[in-house]
Amino acid sequence: MDVFWLQLFNGISVSSILLLIALGLAVTFGQMNVINMAHGELIMVGAYATYMTQKLFQSYLPASWFSQYFLLSIAASFAAAFLIGLLLEKTLIRFLYGRPLDSLLATWGVGLVLQQLARSIFGAPNVGVKSPSWLEGGLSVTQGLVLPYKRLFILALVAVCLLAMFLYIYRTTAGRRMRAVMQNRDMAACLGISTRRVDSLTFAIGSGLAGIAGCALTLIGPIGPTIGTYYIVDAFMVVVLGGVGKLVGTVFGALGIGMTNTLFEYWTTASLGKVLVFLCIVAFLQWKPKGFVAMRTRSLD
């Protein structure tokens, strides 16, 4: 029984990371109709930002401070990915709005460039990030069931990000602008919203979230230039499954894929599990082509 609970917990843990990655994708795809294949590389940026923060702490600051580095690295990874996202939007993405196929190719190219850049700077082999001491060990629930602190920390981190995103989108002026642009771009512009500014900010925030996801991934394993590509396909599945335009949909999508992934892999094998997950997704989309939560409104006229 303990093994089952552990698998369940792992499933939730995987879901939470997927959610963090997919949140950024969902807003960019939902608002701007851009398929950002470079999103995975923004995860990588966040991961390497964490690695750099660790290096800086090791080299320049007293050893006793080291255990605190991780909190700072969360901010650093968000900032790094945010800035690169902003740069990407200003120089490339904004020319591709409303052209999903072109954006897919272009951002894929950007992703390759970023990967190679990481290889040139940090080298091709994976590097390890030392987790802070206060995240070692785990919470013993029963004799055989220990929940690692790292995974619990990631869960909490994702919960905080989700809450922050929710407050941003539904409670702030900037979030209101974002929702207006997402629903009716032309009309939002006609009422005085600078859609260009909203677009850059939204894209940058989505990128920043990917950065935080990268930071979280350093707790789970070593990081390398291609770390993002492992997650990007699943994250896109989450977006498609969840439906575009609503946070709740993305949450359900992430839970759905994370849980079925873990459980199928537990019941069968890793590769067969994946096949079953994709079969489920295909079947589900046949039934509900717009995903869990589709935007609906009373149609008039």
């Binding site: 209101r176 929702r179 207006a180 629903q183 009716n184 032309d186 009309m187 939002a188 335009g245 935007m295 409104t297 009373r298 006229d301």
Partner: peptide, 8 residues
Amino acid sequence: GREIFGQL
């Protein structure tokens, strides 16, 4: 056609 933001 008014173009109200339906979800807002």
